[in-house]
């Protein structure tokens, strides 16, 4: 097996594994049970998405996809921070505050 072929193989395998992880996380996202659990799953999904972008860059042979990974990593932080703030505010206002409907 040539090194290039090995790299292609490894890329495919790691993409599959990443997708599997995303599937597991989606399961947690759906099951909850608390909003915090879902938030953890979403946060981790952001990381998996960044890793998937790196894999996509390799599959496409285009380094441009790495910029997407950078963007995803940044945005996922903002998303997590915003959701955490929302959760905290909702708790502060007692049971009356509702998270936006699903």
């Amino acid at each position: 097996m040539t090194p290039t072929l090995f790299l292609t193989f490894a890329t495919h395998v790691s993409m599959t594994v990443l997708l599997l992880s995303a599937g597991i996380l989606t399961l947690r996202l759906m099951r909850g049970p608390s909003a915090a659990d879902r938030l953890v799953a979403v946060d981790m999904l952001g990381l998996v998405a960044a890793a998937c972008c790196a894999g996509a860059a390799l599959l496409a042979g285009h380094a441009a996809f790495l910029d997407v990974a950078l963007g995803v990593a940044l945005v996922s932080f903002l998303g997590t921070a915003a959701f955490a703030g929302l959760l905290e505010r909702a708790a502060d206002q007692g049971g009356a505050a509702r998270l936006p409907a699903e």
Partner: peptide
């Protein structure tokens, strides 16, 4: 080296996902 890093990284992500679940 890249292939090993990719495989190791995705393995760790999988472990993390199992942990979350």
């Amino acid at each position: 080296l890249a292939a090993i890093l990719l495989l190791a990284g995705s393995g760790i992500v999988l472990i993390a996902a199992v942990g979350v679940a």
